[in-house]
Every structure is written in structure tokens, then in C-alpha cells.
Design a protein around this nucleic acid. Sequence first.
DNA 1: TAGATTGTTAATCGATTAACAATC
DNA 2: TAGATTGTTAATCGATTAACAATC
Lengths: 208, 208
Amino acid sequence: MKGSIPTATVARLPLYLRCLSEVPTDQATCSSEQLAESAGVNPAQVRKDLSYINPPGVRGVGYDVAQLRALLRRELGLTKEHRVAIAGAGNLGNALTLYPGFNESGFHVVALFDTDPAKIGTTVDSLTVEPFEKIGGIVAAKDVSIGVIATPVDAAQDVADRFVEAGVRSILNFAPAVLKRPADVEVRRVDLSTELQILAYYEGQVES
Amino acid sequence: MKGSIPTATVARLPLYLRCLSEVPTDQATCSSEQLAESAGVNPAQVRKDLSYINPPGVRGVGYDVAQLRALLRRELGLTKEHRVAIAGAGNLGNALTLYPGFNESGFHVVALFDTDPAKIGTTVDSLTVEPFEKIGGIVAAKDVSIGVIATPVDAAQDVADRFVEAGVRSILNFAPAVLKRPADVEVRRVDLSTELQILAYYEGQVES
DNA sequence: TAGATTGTTAATCGATTAACAATC
DNA sequence: TAGATTGTTAATCGATTAACAATC
């Protein structure tokens, strides 16, 4: 079951967390107006979103920056370490493995899988590429909680099944596939081609 | 000004296009129910979405697959070629340059930029990495319509400004920054860390 | 006190979907 | 005709935001 915070709000909480780091360090508090400006949203939106997490706001003053950061990190579950496994050691998978932003947010890539015999056994960032068959064992052994799918579309469902079977309940899917899975498995889909196609649509609108 | 199709619908049109390729080739038509199943949405949603583009649907029969595919491609502007420039030749930028899904959809990466002197002059997929200073000239010369930002966050606004100055009106931004830009510039933001943070939130909810 | 800004209500807006008439 | 399925309406649901009382 999902939490009681609206999904649109949940999706903006990481944005607010990031915007807090843009607040000058000599500033102990910041206003919803300032956060809104930085996040590119409406100030009322900021206050409404934050109201779900009982924020450290003071009327006439604003939000305590340090306390709000700590609260957002706690609410988002970033105070725990999250171990991530990536399936697909192609260009995208490797880029994700080496992506500096993950470590900064407390996500650690601890396993990398591929089906290509030429890749299995090679290392990326000190991780040995393992075959899909080992997903079950390694996910359990390394206590992986998040699975990332960076395989071609044909392999995506197979990998997803293996992740789910191994107990993974959170999947970030870069393959252009709609994954079948139990209701308690949360999937976020990032489709790079789709993003370009949406841009292409709006380009056509401007011209006409 | 954006088109009259609701934004939520526009974002689903690429999905329907993709789902059409999952229809068996011996099947000339498909129903909204079939498309919905494949896309993971409600059948009424499919019909409503398609109703905005005057679809080749016949009551009691379904949608003509070939015609619907052609219509979706035309509506999304995929019948034109789109030239893409990528800023940032790190792991992510290179993976995007080599991403096979782009070419398949008619998007061609024609320029690659970086600020690192060690990278400038090297080639990725037969593209020579050029410095940010050349964005203006090369974007104009190569008729780039879409700019992709795969730089660290500090460089993102500078690159965006150069793209916009050069006439780019569509930007796909992978940097965790909220870009300032004129109202007629469409920006899609893909933040990989944010996606993991959203997953982390829902993980916390399940446990409690 | 006067000024600032939150927290919250209520209005508005947009998106989703059940239901069904239209019609192949 | 009977069965199937679209196209569309209207109800519902959820998200956004203007407005303002609360209060520091």
C-alpha cells in the first residue's frame, strides 16, 4: 500500500531537498516563496506539499533549512543505505553504475548483471559482471532493495521477474517495456526515446 | 503555445505507438482493450486519448493498426528527422550518443560537446567532441532542433543558455537543475537520483 | 504594533473512468 | 439480427492555487 502523501507531492519532495542546497549557507531559514522560485513551482504548492510531513515552519519567518533538510531526508528514506543492482552492462548500464549522483544520495550499486558472455566476468567500477542466472542469489546475499533495468527491451521482463522473485520491491526501468509484476512492486519507468518524442510533438505545435 | 491535446495524453501517445508493435502482424485491427492491456492503462483512457487525434477506429471492429501507427507517427512529428546535440561527453552523454533507441525513432545525434580539454577533439561514434563555445555555431550549421544536457549540474544553465541562444526550443535535461529559459522553450527533465529517491520513499511506506 | 509568512480552506482546474448510445 | 467495440458524456477523482486567518 502506498503512503498517504499524494503521488504528485512525493515526486516533488526530492526536488525540494535539492533546492535546499541552493540556499546560501548564511541563511538559517527560507520561505516557501524562495523554495518555489528555486523549484519552479507555485509557493502555495510548496506549502501544501510540505504540510503533509509536518514541516519545521514558523509563520512570519519561514522554514528552518537544516531541520527541513533532515526531515525530507528522513521522509524519503535517505537516512538508510539503499543497495542497488543494475541489469544490463551496456553503455547505459555502465553509465548508471558510474553515475556520481547515486552515491551522493546514499544509493550504492553493489551488483551488475548481463547476459553477454563477453561481458560476464569483466569489471566495471570494481564490480564483476555476473550472468542473469545469478540475480536471485546475489540480490539476496547483498541485500539489494532496488533493481535497475538497463537491458534491451527483450530481456526486460525476464530480468524483472528475476528481481521480483528475489524479493526486490522497487524497480527503475529504462527499457521501453511495460513490466508485468505483483501489485506490491513499485516500478518507475524512464523511457529516453519517449522523452524525445514528447519534445518532437511540442516542436510541431509551435511551428503550426 | 502548446497544442490542444492535454499534456497527460501527449505523454501517453509514444506509449501507444510502441504498444502497436506488440500487436501480432496477422492482426489488422486492435481494440482499445488490447492496447490498454499492453500499455497498462484503462481502455476508456485509450479511447479518450486517441479521440484527440481523429483515430482510424471503427465501432465493433477496433483501430486499424497500420493507419493508427502512421497517424501517431505523424502527430508526434516523427515523420520528420530530428537532429540532436548532446552536451556532456561523460559516461551518461556517451551512452546517450550511442543509445540505439534514438536512431530507431528518427532522432539523430549530430553533435557532442564538452568542456574538458582532454575530451575535446576525441571522437565518440564518429562525432568529434567540441567545446561549449562552439555550441552556437554548430547548432546553427547542423540545424539542431533538440538539445540534450548531460553535464554536471554546475554547467547545465550555461549550456542551456547557449542552446537557447542558438535557437534550440526543445531541451532534454539530465542534470539535476531547474533551468531558467524563455516560455517558448520546452524542457523535459529526467533526474535519475530523483527516481531512486521516489522509490526509496515507497519502500519506507511498505515496511511500516 | 506592523510586517512577514505559514498552514489551511475552498474554489478551480485538469485528468480519469464508468456508462452507454451509436454503429459497424 | 446479435455481438462487438468505438466515441462521448457526465460523474468522479485528484491536483493546483488563490485567498486569508493564524501567528510569529
